[in-house]
């Protein structure tokens, strides 16, 4: 199988092992520019591992991964790759010793060698977009979980990536905060950025996703549009999962 030339992201037979445990088992997936993909599946199904392989925070063991037609291997310039692919973590992982603004400007200044004033202007634009510009001078410890996650999204956006990866961005948040973060993700999706999102946020999956990828035991069980997935899943495993999530 060759990579799809129209796909911004093309995954072929991608596998990842942790010693004897098969975390990812021959994954195949193509994502087109602007597409929103939501990855669903029970805990331990390999969703997060898949997301992390895409910007090589976790290197894969076999198979191939192409981004913008370029193969991602051990020889890839990781700094350029990561400028292309942003990642938002479940636990935000903000830098506690830096203010909100400095969290956002650190990477543009160090990696893109942007002057401080320009980096701060850029950061303020994205902080406004996530409705947190008023807290720019505060430290992460002074913010609520939802606020911190919004800062983390702004921080990733400051590198102006073409693809945004979200690794359960709302899993650590209380329900009220979830809707704030989900709103921002809706906005981002509307702006046309390519998104891959691991989430349990079913409303987001149903209304925003172009494609649902359902995973179990390191394998992709089905790739379907959300309407079909939620109303008529193809596998029994997906059916069980949905019953548990909704029931």
């Amino acid at each position: 199988m060759t990579p799809d030339p129209a796909a911004v992201l093309s995954i072929r037979n991608l596998s990842k092992l942790y010693k004897d445990f098969i975390a990812l088992d021959r994954i195949n997936l193509d994502v087109r520019r602007g597409e929103k993909v939501v990855v669903l599946g029970p805990s331990g199904s390999g969703k997060s591992t898949l997301i992390r392989c895409l910007n090589r925070i976790e290197p894969h063991d076999s198979g191939s991964l192409h981004i913008n037609g370029q193969a991602i291997t051990a020889r890839t310039d990781l700094i350029r790759l990561r400028a292309l692919v942003g990642l938002v973590f479940q636990n935000y992982n903000l830098f506690p010793h830096l203010s909100v603004l400095d969290n956002c400007t650190l990477a543009p200044r160090l990696v893109r060698r942007m002057p401080r004033a320009q980096a701060e202007a850029l950061a303020m634009r994205f902080l406004q977009q996530v409705n947190i510009a008023g807290q720019a001078r505060k430290y992460p410890i002074q913010l609520s979980g939802g606020q911190q996650q919004r800062v983390a999204i702004a921080r990733a956006l400051c590198m102006q990536p073409e693809i945004m990866l979200f690794d359960e961005p709302t899993a650590a948040l209380d329900p009220e905060a979830v809707s704030g973060v989900a709103t921002i993700m809706n906005d981002l999706a509307a702006q046309g950025i390519t998104m891959l999102c691991v989430t349990h946020e079913m409303r987001f999956a149903r209304h925003v996703a172009d494609l649902i990828v359902f995973m179990d035991q390191g394998r992709i069980m089905e790739i379907t549009p959300p309407e079909q997935f939620f109303t008529n899943p193809q596998t029994q495993r997906a059916q069980d999962f949905l019953n548990q999530m909704i029931g």
Binding site: R82, G86, N93, L106, L110, V111, R155, A156
Partner: peptide
């Protein structure tokens, strides 16, 4: 996870330690 976050933003190993 702090180092991981730095890596994900494209910081080099040295920059992750330094900053």
């Amino acid at each position: 996870a702090q180092a991981l976050a730095g890596n994900a933003l494209g910081l080099s190993r040295g920059q992750v330690y330094r900053h």
